[in-house]
Design a binder for these strands. Structure first.
Lengths: 193, 193
DNA sequence: AATTCAATACGAGACGGTTCGTAATGTTTA
DNA sequence: TAAACATTACGAACCGTCTCGTATTGAATT
């Protein structure tokens, strides 16, 4: 995703980059994603419009970069030796994000844009969704000594992220800690795995 | 939601209503929801702009009415006497919609708009989401003789619709018949209910 | 029963305003 | 000296409102 390093000419302004990301978060936080426009990002960040267009293909890509900056890129995959505690820890971390309004706003914005722009949807999956799936898949597969399994691992992954996204996007309910226990129960039942 | 029955004056044109819904479906089907505008709906349906604005508050409400028209309003809740077969039947019906590209496009459009417009999100939940939840809740509660349950019924409902919406909105994968069996298994395990 | 009248919906399209994404221009900086 | 920069202008599209003349309906009046 890194642009070819230009050895000649003026270097990219890191100040402008940060200003753009901050402005995007600021606008979404106060007025919502519907109010976000590249025009306004440029205005409120004190950056030229063309500068934004030069470095980000869409406003959603700005948001995605802002999100990755916020949640930190490398989330360690828990490895306690037991499936149940790994799972519990993974869910606890995931739901913690789901309780942070700033993060939720960004996630909702990205999901919305993915519906409207299939090219961005592809980038969103590759950059964000697949990483999270891979982490959970690792946990579920690591100590998978029960065979044959009536439910595919990929379906269990769908269940976890499905519940999370469904409640972020469709329902207005917040996450409670009981959900961690419930999902762990559901996924570690003998016949389920 | 029904407008005050006007005893006087010209009656609403059913032809125009149908033309608007058809145009919306057509536009979304060919160019996607991002290309949908009230201006274009009016143009392609041969209807006056004011006619659209008179009857629908937003373009998303047009889409929602088009969806309800497509999936039929009254879906009977299966009642075979056994939880497992009720569930299997409910899931089979639900996934059938999820395999119809025209329906999927509309669902994705509605979900996208719900992220951008909270007033519409409310109408969407009240008109569509809650009905589907209620149906599944009925099924799960009907023969619920196992107490205490470690997983709330509402969470089981979240699991089902979560997986469906997640795969419609976030992942590009299609539904296969195995999913019906898997979800039924997950939800009817002794300790889960 | 025939006519008039008021109320409302209709298609068409003009309107002023907003935002979009691109392009042109000159300045700044590595 | 090449590329990134901020600024400004541009045409296109869409927004929501409004007006025009016409069509359709039910109620009131002959």
């Amino acid at each position: 995703m890194e642009r070819q390093r230009a050895t000649r000419g003026r270097a990219r302004s890191e100040v402008s980059r940060q200003a753009v990301l901050a402005a995007a978060i600021q606008i979404i936080g106060t007025d919502g994603y519907a109010a976000l426009s590249i025009e306004r990002i440029a205005r409120e960040s004190g950056v030229g419009k063309q500068t934004v267009y030069r470095w980000w293909p869409t406003k959603a890509d700005v948001v995605m970069e802002a999100l990755l900056h916020k949640v930190e890129v490398n989330i360690p995959i828990p490895d306690t030796g037991a499936l149940e505690s790994d799972l519990r820890q993974f869910l606890t971390t995931s739901l913690r994000w789901g309780r942070m309004p700033q993060v939720v706003e960004l996630l909702r914005a990205l999901a919305a844009e993915a519906q409207l722009n299939s090219a961005f949807a592809e980038r969103f999956r590759a950059t964000f969704v697949d990483h999270r799936r891979a982490a959970l898949t690792t946990i579920l597969t690591r100590n998978d000594d029960r065979n044959p399994t009536p439910v595919r691992t990929s379906t269990l992954v769908d269940v976890v992220f499905g519940v999370i996204w469904y409640r972020l996007l469709i329902l207005p309910t917040e996450f409670d800690d009981t959900l961690v226990t419930e999902l762990t129960t559901l996924l570690t039942q003998p016949t389920a795995r």
